[in-house]
Amino acid sequence: MQDVVLALLAKEPSHGYDLRRRLAAALGPLGEALNAGQIYVTLTRLEKTGLVVQEREDAPVRGPRRKVYALTASGQQRVAAWLAETTGPRADVAEFHLKLVAAAESGLADPLALADARRRELMRRLAEVQHAALAHDVNTEAGLLLEGIALRLQADLRWLDACERTWSARAPGGRGGGNG
């Protein structure tokens, strides 16, 4: 949560309400459980650790000048590190999804490059699992577990193809409009 909130702030200083709206948009129905309180709690923690500061909005579109949250220098470093760190094979779908959204919104990383790095990582992992799986009978306990892990990794790789299609269609002058 902290990393995601920080990454969303990398685009521009924002009000808590605005962050919640963007997070909800990125999460779709999964974001319904998200309440404004969680965002404010996270922002307060981030402020305490010096990763964000509150400042006055420059030029409000309408209404009075509100307080907005902005990244500090160390907040920016942390976002860059989070985007660059390769997510492990166990990383959950929503976390990686938000990383792509945050990368695209902030312009701090190329979502397609993140997807490529993750594909290589998952493929290497799948190679290890498949070599082990072929060495074990599927009807043994070990073989059954390896089969399950291989199927999970395969599902992750297929979802990554979908990510790549969507993000490359959105990228300015990106990898073309996908296939077939």
Partner: peptide, 30 residues
């Protein structure tokens, strides 16, 4: 099929006729 590809020494990914990735896979099982 990614599970089939994962048994090779090396994987080249094509998109629209262009290789976009070339990855060497380890063969040390597990």
């Amino acid at each position: 099929d990614e599970r089939v590809a994962a048994t090779a020494d090396r994987v080249v990914s094509l998109r629209d006729g262009v290789p976009v990735d070339d990855t060497r896979l380890a063969d040390d099982a597990g």
